[in-house]
Design a protein around this nucleic acid. Structure first.
Length: 116
RNA sequence: CAGGUGAGGCGCCCUAUCGGGGAGCUGGAUGCUCUCAGGAAAGUCCGGGCAGCACAGGGCGGCACGCUGUGGAAAUCACAGAUGGGCGUAAGCUUAUGCGACUUGCGUAACAGAAAAUGACCGGCCCUCAGGGGCCAAGGGUGAAAACGCGGGGUAAGAGCCCACGGGCAUAUAUGGCGACAUAUAUGCAGUACGCGGCCGUGCGCUGCAAGGCCAAAUAUACCGGCACAUAAGGGUUGCCCGCCCUUUGCCGGGGGGUAGGCUGCAUCAGAUAAAUGAUAGGGGAGCGCUCCGGCGCUUACAGAACCCGGCUUACAGUCUCACCUUUUUU
RNA sequence: GGUGAGGUGGGUGAGUGGCUGAAACCACCAGUUUGCUAAACUGACGUACUCGAUUAGGGUACCGGGGGUUCGAAUCCCCCCCUCACCG
């Protein structure tokens, strides 16, 4: 089981991301809202966003993005079990949450996104 | 010892597990080695480099700045100093500064007050035909500000009207200083404060890396070539006819500009581009509080590069170094 | 990343050195009208602290926040905070 998180797994390009937020199926678990769309690439790809409106200082946005990315990295193999899709994670809460809360939310979203 | 003033510095460390960006080793993958955030990276308040556009040269206009010296590419920069004002017992901090001012640019000075700059309400004095006419600016009162201060002479009463002392401004000379300026002497001047679009000096062309350069899907298409359809319409070729050529329709191929997008700009031991520099756990250090002196609890800041430099400003747990001041006590 | 504009009662928004705590419109509140309502008309209307036994009435401060200039600042200057627009 690998815990790696390559450059290939980063979702980029404005068009793919706006597609994802428009067509992707929304999943919600406080403090994170996510959009998911299956297919697109052989590996799962992720984008993480923290709105500037809620956190004015760049260091807090960076901290939250790092925590979310870390939670994805450690749990993607276990929760997805071979499934691959494109994801957009958006941090909704107005305060900085601890890593444990973020990890729980990420686990639940990843598990729910996999087709049964 | 306590409190304070000024200048400068540091701004957590180690281990384990799992990861990330860049460079190199190789033609490629795996792998290995090296390296990876700040003093403010922030605000974008100034100044440059750099890039594009404009530009013979000069002027007007506009904007910014305005005491002196040194440094500096330059700056609303730094250091040292000058003069005036404000705060503080003090160390010290802070703010202002060209000319127009020895009579002469312009404007403003609300309310109050007679008057806010050709001063006269109350008042003082002189004359009087008793209605008034004239002289004065000391005292009162208003105001943020009231016509140099004070003493003497002088006068009808008074007044820089005159004189002494003191204060202000200008000029000249001397001395000290690189200089701003200070001190002294002489002469002269006199209705205040503030501001300005006036004058003088210095600097500035404009826009900013989303600048600029390169590559370049899809769709439409300038232009070029070929084919098909049609012999229809329009135009040209001599006025007319025939003939010939071009255009109007469709398809195929080439093709320029240019959009999405990408690369570059962008590195000198950071060099990303939905953006790395980390996450979790344990231990240690430092500080504070409680303490049954075994320990326990809390805190460990402000904050994250995006073309690069020089400054300024703002945020910052704690801690260190040096110099100085004040109070009290002791010698 | 860069460039520019703005912040004044509950809302919109004038005022650009002096009787402006602040015009005007809307909203809110009270009254007139009506069987009741709407519309119309009339009046009143900021917040905090404070003086006043209370009612009435008065004082001080506040124009995003903090300094400065000035006799006097919403207005002029400096620094922060916030909002909006533009540049591919």
């Amino acid at each position: 089981m690998s815990f790696s998180f390559d450059k290939e797994q980063r979702l980029r390009h404005r068009e793919t991301i706006s597609d994802l937020s428009a067509k992707g199926s929304p999943l919600f678990k406080f403090p994170i809202k996510a959009y998911c769309l299956p297919g697109g690439a052989p590996v799962s790809r992720y984008a993480v966003a923290v709105p500037k409106k809620n956190f004015k200082r760049a260091i807090k946005r960076n901290l939250l993005k790092r925590r979310i990315r870390e939670a994805i990295r450690l749990n993607q193999a276990e929760c997805l079990d071979g499934f691959a899709g494109d994801y957009l994670f958006v941090y909704i809460a107005k305060d900085v949450c601890e890593y444990a809360a973020i990890e729980a939310a990420v686990r639940e979203i990843l598990t729910k996104s996999r087709p049964q």
